[in-house]
Amino acid sequence: MRLPSPLLRGTLIKRYKRFLADITLEGGELITAHCANPGAMLGLNMPGLPVFVSKSDNPKRKLQYSLELVELPTGLVGINTNYPNKIVGEALSEDAISELNPIEDFRAEVKYGENSRIDFLLNQKANQMTYLEVKNVHLARGDGLAEFPDCETERGVKHLNELANMVAAGHRAINLYLVQRTDCDRFGFAQDLAPKYANAVRKAHDEGVEFLCYDCDISRNEIRLASRLPILLPSS
């Protein structure tokens, strides 16, 4: 997935009210950027971090700038939660996720469950329907371990329950975690930050929901799905 071009480099002053970030651009201009990430952004919201923003020419936007990447000593981190579905959609079109092949066709944002939409509904061989939910991962607290989520998520628990219902109805259901980082070699669940979600993961796994995790190749120009990471399921 190509990122908006060109990205502008700056320094984070503060992130606040969930969706706002004050940033000083190179050259000294102070801006307020939209932050498309409702999570806590632990480790990625510290004043002084180098960041990259895009600028929109749309006159109808309240904020011209959007926060796209945070730069850590270990590499770039994508924080825009609007991107994972686009990244995975491109990967599906390119048959780049071997665990999901072969795919006859797929659709995005299909209504299912109780007032929900599945990110992707895949029609696989022998007309098997696969429900694929995508989650953005940006949390890592050291030792190469990516974690999800960074706070409790009722919406995430609901999605796990609905995926389990699809398995009970005879379909295949998968939760795919996309790590928008380049510095992790495995994935796990932040039980201390979100014990309810961890419990829901254990229950969904026992009921047949599958779990996949991939990381990304990230540059200032694009973000692409890269390699599968091993998953550490929550302990009981």
Score class of each variant (00 low, 15 high):
Asn101Ser: 11
Ser98Gly: 10
Leu69Ile: 05
Ser98Asn: 06
Ala91Lys: 11
Pro59Trp: 09
Val77Tyr: 03
Val70Asp: 00
Val70Pro: 02
Leu72Asn: 06
Glu68Ser: 02
Lys60Trp: 09
Pro84Lys: 02
Val88Met: 01
Val77Ala: 04
Glu90Leu: 13
Leu72Glu: 04
Ser98Lys: 15
Gly75Gln: 14
Tyr83Gln: 13
Glu99Trp: 04
Gln64His: 11
Asn85Pro: 11
Lys86Met: 09
Leu63Lys: 05
Val88Asp: 04
Ile79Val: 13
Asn82Trp: 03
Leu67Gln: 02
Val88Gln: 01
Pro84Tyr: 02
Pro73Ala: 10
Glu94Arg: 15
Leu69Gly: 03
Ser93Val: 03
Pro59Tyr: 07
Asn85Thr: 09
Asn58Pro: 01
Asn82Leu: 12
Thr81Val: 13
Tyr65Gln: 12
Leu92His: 09
Glu90Cys: 09
Gly89Lys: 05
Leu67Trp: 01
Glu94Asp: 13
Pro102Asn: 14
Glu99Arg: 13
Asn85His: 11
Leu100Gly: 06
Glu71Tyr: 01
Ser56Trp: 05
Ile97Cys: 14
Arg61Tyr: 07
Val88Glu: 00
Leu100Trp: 05
Tyr83Arg: 14
Ser93Gly: 14
Tyr65Thr: 01
Lys62Pro: 06
Tyr83Val: 08
Val70Ser: 02
Leu76Phe: 05
Gln64Leu: 07
Leu100Asn: 01
Pro84Cys: 10
Ile103Gly: 07
Ser93His: 05
Ala91Ser: 15
Pro102Asp: 04
Val70Ala: 07
Gly78Cys: 13
Thr81Lys: 15
Lys60Val: 07
Ile79Glu: 00
Lys62Gln: 04
Gly78Asn: 07
Ser93Thr: 09
Ile79Gln: 00
Val77Leu: 08
Tyr65Trp: 09
Gly78Met: 03
Leu67Asn: 00
Asn82Val: 14
